[in-house]
Simulated assay, not measured.
Amino acid sequence: MDVFKPSPCPLVAILRGLTPAEAPRVGQILFEAGFRMLEVPLNRPGAIDAIHALLRDAPDDALIGAGTVLTVQDVDAVKEAGGRLIVSPHCAPDVISHAAKHGMIALPGVATPTEAFRALEAGAHGLKLFPAEMIPPAAVKAMHSILPVDTPLFPVGGVQPHNMAAYVSAGAAGFGIGGSLYQPRIDEAALKRAAESFMAARRNLVEDAL
């Protein structure tokens, strides 16, 4: 699975509660900081319109889509909006296969080896390890050892710049970052500081791997 190879250790910005009005400025700050994967969870009003707004100004190499995708109908709505990234909190084989069939990138949530293998069989491009507070680096290492070697693992939940290295050492390929990066109506300066902090941690990890 080489879909994430152009961007080592990709960071997915989880923009829960993002409004269409906020989206252009939030997107600009994150793109300037180096983020290229953005998801807007669908369980807040205006998510699809916010995805539209992000896509209007997104760089060509950006991967924009939705989180909290629970149904096949959700996948269709994101596809119609132009989104290409489908992130779920759970393992729903019908959602995964539907997204993959339409050329979208599926990152379903899993917490056990059983769920992980079910997700891969359905066509998942990577696995969201959620909630990561329940899946410490030692558990990631154990899961990584039994999964296909090219399976991208993305811990999500409680991720901070200071704990990323332990997860990468255990086999994580990237991260999903939510409330520690973005919250609704966040001050722009605070968003910029958080984005730069996460990107600095990412750069250190990439440089250490070279």
Rank of each mutant, 00 (worst) to 15 (best):
residue 147 L to T: 14
residue 188 E to Q: 14
residue 204 N to D: 14
residue 202 R to S: 05
residue 173 A to F: 09
residue 192 K to G: 04
residue 67 G to M: 07
residue 94 D to A: 14
residue 125 H to K: 08
residue 126 G to C: 05
residue 170 A to W: 08
residue 113 P to M: 01
residue 92 A to M: 06
residue 36 R to W: 05
residue 162 H to W: 15
residue 50 A to K: 01
residue 72 V to R: 15
residue 181 L to A: 00
residue 162 H to K: 14
residue 122 A to Q: 09
residue 43 N to K: 11
residue 85 L to D: 05
residue 9 C to Q: 07
residue 84 R to L: 15
residue 124 A to I: 04
residue 19 T to N: 07
residue 107 L to H: 04
residue 67 G to S: 14
residue 46 G to V: 13
residue 7 S to F: 14
residue 121 E to L: 09
residue 27 G to P: 03
residue 197 S to T: 00
residue 205 L to R: 01
residue 108 P to C: 08
residue 119 A to N: 10
residue 78 V to D: 11
residue 135 I to Q: 09
residue 13 A to E: 09
residue 37 M to K: 02
residue 10 P to S: 06
residue 21 A to E: 09
residue 151 T to N: 03
residue 95 V to W: 06
residue 99 A to M: 11
residue 113 P to C: 00
residue 135 I to C: 10
residue 134 M to C: 10
residue 65 G to I: 09
residue 28 Q to G: 11
residue 134 M to S: 11
residue 203 R to D: 12
residue 148 P to L: 06
residue 103 G to Q: 05
residue 43 N to A: 14
residue 183 Q to H: 08
residue 137 P to K: 01
residue 114 T to C: 01
residue 100 A to P: 08
residue 86 I to H: 09
residue 131 P to F: 05
residue 175 F to M: 10
residue 178 G to N: 03
residue 126 G to Y: 02
residue 110 V to R: 02
residue 68 T to S: 15
residue 15 L to V: 11
residue 105 I to C: 12
residue 194 A to P: 04
residue 97 S to C: 12
residue 178 G to Y: 03
residue 72 V to K: 11
residue 201 A to C: 02
residue 21 A to W: 01
residue 25 R to C: 02
residue 52 H to Y: 13
residue 94 D to V: 13
residue 155 P to Q: 14
residue 135 I to P: 07
residue 183 Q to C: 00
residue 69 V to H: 05
residue 130 F to N: 08
residue 45 P to S: 13
residue 38 L to G: 03
residue 13 A to S: 15
residue 56 R to Q: 10
residue 65 G to W: 13
residue 162 H to N: 14
residue 31 F to Y: 15
residue 97 S to V: 12
residue 183 Q to T: 08
residue 18 L to M: 09
